[in-house]
């Protein structure tokens, strides 16, 4: 219908759209049922549609329930302090506190600290990189680019988002890692920074398109008023559009961070997967997502490590969930401000 509507339709004398309507046979008066009684098929269909609508709610509930179910069992089985550190005896018999994620072996160690620092060591640089590029791209597409440039560049950015993450991860592993190591002379070929670049690549389109949407939501009158006062184009952008859309842009970056924390395949392939506690972005790290992906295939179902991995998953889900809620609140604030 859309295809035929465009050219075939026009505007009538009253300014209304005249479009070809699909034929609806009017119900003959004789067969029309009394208004009060609802048709059974209508009721059944509406119930079915409502059920489909609530499936999303049910699914989100089930996801939380199942992760909690296994995760809580891990909390009951493994002493709470073990998730921070374990005391082991070194070779001279002296007790030593270690913070390791080493679930396989005689004395499994379940410190979540290396996984948490690993996740953030990838996600924070990735978000900074993606924020710079994404916001720049969003501003350019919304405020600066001509329609023609935009029609070429925007699909390209969207296509970048469509590249499977395993492909980005593979390229980081096969090309970017070596290239960066030769360029920067790092110790590890695969490190948090390589992973961060990969993750940034898939986050940029998200931030760019959300930034663009936020800027487009700024009323045109604000811009016109600034131009009327003699502002230059950049003054309008930096002084009016971006400040008005700042909540939306912030929400875009927050959502980007959530996406970066949840990214699995890229970090699994590109960060080297050594569970170290470090703040060096050029060190090999292991994230929460990569830990689950690498270990779940080889664990005993229902075992201690299995439940610990569900706990890691539950922690990850809680973090990303919180991030999404924060982003939603920030967006809500922007909507209210623009509405008033």
């Amino acid at each position: 219908m859309w295809l035929t509507m465009g050219r075939g339709s026009g505007t009538s004398a009253w300014g209304e759209v005249v479009a070809e309507l699909p034929a609806v046979r009017p119900v003959p008066a004789a067969s029309r049922r009394p208004r009060r009684r609802r048709d059974w098929d209508e009721v059944v269909i509406e119930a079915g549609l409502r059920l489909a609508g609530y499936v999303a709610v049910i699914l989100i509930g089930l996801i939380f329930a199942f992760l909690l179910k296994e995760g809580i069992q891990a909390l009951l089985r493994i002493p709470l302090s073990e998730f921070l550190s374990t005391t082991v005896l070194d070779y001279q018999g002296n007790p030593k506190v270690v913070r390791l994620w080493q679930p396989v072996g005689d004395a499994p160690k379940y410190s979540l600290l290396p996984l948490l620092t690993g996740s953030f060591l990838v996600a924070v640089p990735a978000t900074i990189l993606a924020g710079i590029f994404g916001v720049g791209t969003g501003v350019y597409l919304a405020e600066l680019a001509s329609t023609r440039t935009r029609e070429i560049l925007k699909p390209m950015i969207e296509l970048l988002a469509g590249i499977p993450t395993v492909v980005i991860g593979f390229l980081c592993l096969a090309s970017l890692g070596t290239f960066l190591q030769e360029l920067l002379g790092t110790t590890f070929r695969l490190n948090a920074f390589v992973g961060a670049i990969g993750v940034a690549l898939v986050t940029v389109p998200l931030i760019a398109s959300l930034t663009e949407d936020a800027l487009r939501a700024v009323p045109a009158e604000l811009r016109s008023a600034a131009y009327g006062l003699g502002a230059t184009r950049w003054q309008v952008i930096a002084g009016v559009s971006v400040p008005a859309a700042v909540s939306g842009i912030a929400a875009a970056c927050i959502l980007g961070m959530g996406r970066a924390l949840g990214e699995t395949m890229i970090v699994l392939l590109a960060t080297g997967n050594a569970a170290l506690i470090t703040l060096d972005v050029f060190s090999s790290v292991r994230t929460m997502t990569a830990t689950i992906a690498a270990e779940l295939g080889a664990v005993v179902q229902g075992g201690e490590q299995y439940q610990a991995l569900f706990l890691v998953g539950g922690l990850l889900l809680t973090i990303t969930f919180t991030i999404n809620v924060v982003a939603e609140l920030v967006l809500e604030r922007m909507r209210r401000r623009l509405a008033s």
Binding site: I60, F66, T289, I292, F310, L316
Partner: peptide, 19 residues
């Protein structure tokens, strides 16, 4: 729920699928 479902990390989906 739809918004939050969109934000669920894919690996968490995998965990859920298995469990």
């Amino acid at each position: 729920a739809v918004n939050n479902l969109a934000g669920v990390p894919s690996i968490v989906c995998g965990l859920f699928g298995l469990g």
